[in-house]
Design a protein around this nucleic acid. Sequence first.
DNA 1: GCGACAG
DNA 2: ATCTTGTCGC
Length: 224
Amino acid sequence: MSKQLNYCNSHPWNLSPSEAIALQRKLSAQVITEDRLDPVQTVAGVDVGFEDRDSITRAAVVVLRFDDLSFIEQTVARQPTCSRYIPGLLSFRECPAILAALAQLTVTPDLIFCDGQGIAHPRRFGIACHLGVLTNLPSIGVGKSRLVGRHEPVPEMRGSWVPLIDKEETIGAVLRTRSGVSPIFVSPGHRISLTTAIDYVMACTTRYRLPETTRNADKLASSK
DNA sequence: GCGACAG
DNA sequence: ATCTTGTCGC
């Protein structure tokens, strides 16, 4: 049996913006937005923070048991920052460190929650898609704000959502995880449908706006 | 040309 | 993302 996480078939990361965009267009053909996931027993949250005025990128992964959200494992990877942030090209800045953190895990998560968008992206290839395709793991994009798309107001009740639409296409959901708090942006990353993604996000969200996976990864990525 | 723009 | 204390509201 070989380890499931195989990052050796990755690709160069030091690309110009136009090269990166071309690569996104090419890789987006591999994205699967249907449910092709095994029964979920473990969920992972990934997040990235920066140190020393952006010179160091710090990626954190936290794995929880799905049924009770109890802690299983966490890893952190620190690397020199490889590129600046450009809207639409976030994954080229954050993925290298995230892949390094994922490679340190001793368990393979059944589902990954990413900080940012999945297909709710100009080329339908946000960071959750990129991470999902490279690892071949099911992934969901969980964004705190909007990159593209338009939507109607979201009802106040916890659990309600409205479609996020771009060019006549539903690319995600604007989801109210808590009443009285601004909604979050959920979209499929890889090997999962939108409605299933919403279900998993709600199942992992207790009393805060963001899923516990993301909150835990957040702490790890930004605490020193 | 102008405005928008995940983290 | 990051720089940062107290403060308003349920």
